[in-house]
C-alpha cells in the first residue's frame, strides 16, 4: 500500500559523536539515493518479440515480403523536455512479427531482404526478387513511417502509450505500385501495474509490444479490404 502522504522531515542528529556522524552520513546517502531514483530520467528499451500466429484463413496467393534495412534497424530516439532521452529499438522485432503474420495470411510466402525503399521506387526489391529467383504474385513491403510515445507525466494519465505508423506498399512483380496504405498500431501499459522503481523500461516495452500486436491484428484482419488490394485480389479470383 503506497503511503504517498508520508514525509521525512526534520532529520536531526543531536550529537556530534562518531555514531551521530556515521548515522548522518547513512541518512544523507539514503536521501540522495531516493532523490536519484525520483529523478530517474529517460528509458532505453529493446523490443525483441513476436506475435502469436493469427487465426485467419490464408489468402491463396504467393506473396513476396520485402524487409528493407531501414525497417530491420529502426530505432526511435526522442528527447522529452524535463524527462530525458527515450530510446526504443524496434528493429529486431519487425521480421519475427511480420513473418508470423504473413505466414498465416498467405498461402505461400517468400522473404526478400535488401536496401531501403524510397518513395515508390521499387528498384531495391526488384533486385532482391531477381537475385532470389522467387516465383511470387506480388511483393508486400512494410516500412515504419513514424513512431510516437507518451509517458504518464506528459498526459497526466496512468498509461504509457505507443503509436507505430507503418506504410504498407503492395507492388506487382514488375515494380508497379498496386496499393499503399497506413497501418496504425497502438499499445498502452498501465503504470499502476509496475513497481515504483525502474518502471519506465518495462512499461514502455510492454506498450510497444501491444502496439505491435495491434498492428499485426489489424493487418491480418483488414488486408483483403484495403482499397487497391481488394481489386487486385478480385482480379485474381479471390474475394475479399
Amino acid at each position: 500500500m503506497p503511503v504517498s502522504g508520508f514525509s521525512v522531515a526534520g532529520l536531526a542528529v543531536l550529537s556530534g559523536s562518531r555514531v551521530g556522524r556515521a548515522l548522518y552520513g547513512a541518512a544523507a546517502g539514503a536521501v540522495l539515493l531516493v532523490a536519484m531514483l525520483g529523478c530517474a530520467r529517460g528509458a532505453s528499451v529493446t523490443v525483441n518479440t513476436t506475435v502469436p500466429s493469427p487465426l485467419v484463413n490464408p489468402i491463396p496467393v504467393k506473396m513476396g515480403v520485402y524487409f528493407d534495412d531501414a525497417l530491420t534497424a529502426y530505432v526511435h530516439v526522442e528527447e522529452v523536455p524535463d524527462h530525458g532521452e527515450y530510446r526504443i529499438d524496434l528493429g529486431a522485432s519487425q521480421v519475427p512479427v511480420f513473418e508470423r503474420v504473413f505466414d498465416a495470411m498467405f498461402q505461400d510466402v517468400t522473404r526478400l531482404k535488401g536496401k531501403a525503399l524510397e518513395n515508390e521506387n521499387a528498384a531495391p526489391f526488384l533486385d532482391a526478387l531477381q537475385s532470389s529467383g522467387a516465383n511470387v504474385d506480388a511483393v508486400l513491403a512494410p516500412t515504419i513511417e513514424e513512431m510516437q510515445f507518451a509517458i504518464p507525466a506528459q498526459t497526466k494519465g496512468d498509461f504509457y502509450e505507443v503509436w507505430i505508423k507503418y506504410r504498407m506498399k503492395l507492388f506487382a512483380t514488375d515494380g508497379t505500385l498496386i496499393a499503399d496504405w497506413d497501418l496504425l498500431g497502438y499499445g498502452k501499459a498501465n503504470s499502476d501495474n509496475y513497481g515504483s522503481v525502474g518502471t519506465q523500461d518495462d512499461a514502455l516495452g510492454d506498450a510497444t509490444i501491444w502496439a505491435l500486436r495491434d498492428a499485426a491484428a489489424f493487418l491480418s484482419f483488414y488486408f483483403p479490404t484495403v482499397d487497391g488490394v481488394r481489386e487486385w485480389l478480385e482480379g485474381r479470383g479471390v474475394g475479399a
Binding site: S7, A9, L11, A12, L23, A27
Partner: peptide, 9 residues
C-alpha cells in the same frame, strides 16, 4: 502527515 526524525544513537 507523519514526520520522522532520527535521534542520536
Amino acid at each position: 502527515t507523519v514526520q520522522c526524525t532520527v535521534f542520536t544513537g
